[in-house]
């Protein structure tokens, strides 16, 4: 495996990792979905979790968000163990799931207000945050629209606003742009990248769309439940001996040949 390490807990400067995944494995019955996966990401970085369908990205998200129990290995979010201190850990995380999770019968405002209450935010504070975030995702004036009436891209924007309502330090997005048109994809990606730079939010962006990756990003690559590479995109390209992240990713996913998994750092 190519190993360009990100920030580790207790690393240089004692900086606590935004997310520290250590030796995590998970199985569905006899089917291994994740196999001893370890990586960590630093605060205020944009990290792409790359993998083809079935690579284990959604399983990893379910473990990080404590929907599934981490029975093998450990996951820490800003130092909080997701099993032992799930409340503290989840307060640091905003999540956009792959499936649409808005309540279609409720309005945009009611959906956001519900989420705010799930984080103990109510009243005027909730109203202010909702107003600000709707502006941030360019959905101002749509508070009273039924979620059902929104397009796929608009729903995603609302879900992003919802994930930011409780001011998380780490944002997890699972295939957030799947099914959207090019313009919507670009807009959402630009907004998320901007949040990293202006607000210092760490982002784990799961995708199988290689054109969403930029050279300056960090990347974690999964293949069939195994971590096959992690590091900056430019380092991955260099280590793979290819000319682009697309070629590097293709090489990583080529089974039975000399992929990056076999290229030691």
């Amino acid at each position: 495996m190519i190993g360009v390490q990100h920030v580790r807990t207790g690393g240089p400067g004692n900086e606590v990792a935004a997310l520290d995944v250590a030796g995590v494995s998970h199985s569905y019955g006899s089917k291994r979905a994740l196999n001893n996966v370890s990586f960590s990401i630093a605060p205020a970085t944009f990290t792409v979790l790359l993998g083809l369908n079935g690579a284990g990205k959604t399983t990893l998200f379910s473990l990080i968000s404590h929907l599934y129990d981490t029975r093998h290995g450990s996951i820490r979010i800003f130092g909080h163990d997701i099993r032992r201190a799930s409340g503290e850990a989840l307060r640091c995380v905003g999540i956009v799931f792959q499936a649409r999770t808005l309540d279609l019968d409720l309005s945009v405002y009611q959906n956001l207000s519900y989420h705010a209450s799930l984080h103990g935010i109510g009243g005027r504070e909730a109203r202010q945050r909702i107003a600000t975030l709707l502006e941030t995702v360019d959905m101002q004036g749509r508070e009273h629209d039924k979620a059902r009436s929104l397009s796929g891209g608009q729903m995603r924007r609302i879900e992003i606003a919802r994930a930011l309502l409780h001011r998380p330090s780490l944002l997890l997005l699972d295939e957030a742009t799947v099914g959207l048109d090019i313009q919507s994809r670009a807009g959402i990606l630009a907004t998320i990248r901007r949040l990293v730079h202006t607000e210092g939010i760490g982002v784990l962006w799961a995708t199988h769309l290689i054109d969403e990756v930029e050279d300056g990003d960090h990347a974690v690559v999964l293949r069939q439940g195994n971590l096959v590479a992690s590091g900056t995109v430019s380092d991955l390209i260099q280590a793979s001996g290819t000319g682009s992240i697309r070629d590097a990713f293709s090489k990583l996913n080529r089974s039975g040949t000399a992929g990056i998994a076999e290229i030691s750092p």
Partner: peptide
């Protein structure tokens, strides 16, 4: 999607 939000606008997500 807005791409030009000011830092002031985003201050709430600190």
């Amino acid at each position: 999607m807005s791409t030009s939000a000011t830092p002031q606008k985003l201050a709430s997500v600190t």
